[in-house]
Simulated scan of single mutants.
Amino acid sequence: MVLLGTLVNGLCIVLGSALGLFFTKIPERYKQTVMNGIGLAIILIGIQMALTTENIVIVLLSLLTGAIIGELINLEEKLTNAGEWIQLRVNANQHNKHNNIAQGFITATLVFCVGAMAVIGALDGGLRNDHEVLFTKGLLDGFVALVLTTTLGMGVMLSVIPVVLYQGTIALLATQIERFLPESFLSSFILEMTATGGLLIVAIGLNMLNITKIRIANLLPSVVTVGIIIFIYQLFI
Results as ranks from 00 to 15, higher is better:
N129C: 05
Q176N: 11
L209V: 02
F189W: 06
G227K: 01
G138N: 12
A116H: 03
M117L: 12
F189L: 13
L123E: 06
G138C: 11
T6P: 01
G10Y: 02
I229W: 02
V111M: 10
E76V: 09
A116K: 09
N99C: 05
N55F: 03
I237Y: 12
V114I: 14
L134Q: 06
I68P: 01
T33Y: 12
F236C: 02
I232Q: 09
Q48S: 12
L158W: 02
L181N: 05
I38A: 11
L172K: 03
R179E: 15
T194S: 01
L3R: 01
A195R: 02
T225R: 02
L110A: 08
L3Q: 08
G16S: 03
L110I: 09
S159K: 06
G153A: 07
D130M: 04
T194V: 01
N218G: 01
L209A: 10
A171N: 06
N9C: 06
I161N: 10
C113I: 06
D141Q: 09
L186H: 11
V202G: 08
T80Y: 15
K97V: 09
I170P: 03
I237V: 14
L148A: 07
F105M: 09
S222I: 04
A41P: 01
E54F: 02
L110H: 07
R128A: 07
E183L: 05
N99E: 14
V147R: 01
L11D: 01
L15N: 03
I190C: 03
V144L: 14
Y166N: 09
A18T: 12
G39D: 10
I106S: 13
K97A: 13
M193F: 04
Q176C: 01
V147C: 09
G37S: 05
K78D: 14
G5Q: 11
L209Y: 00
R29V: 15
T225F: 13
T175F: 03
T149R: 07
P221S: 05
G20L: 12
I69V: 14
A195W: 02
G126N: 13
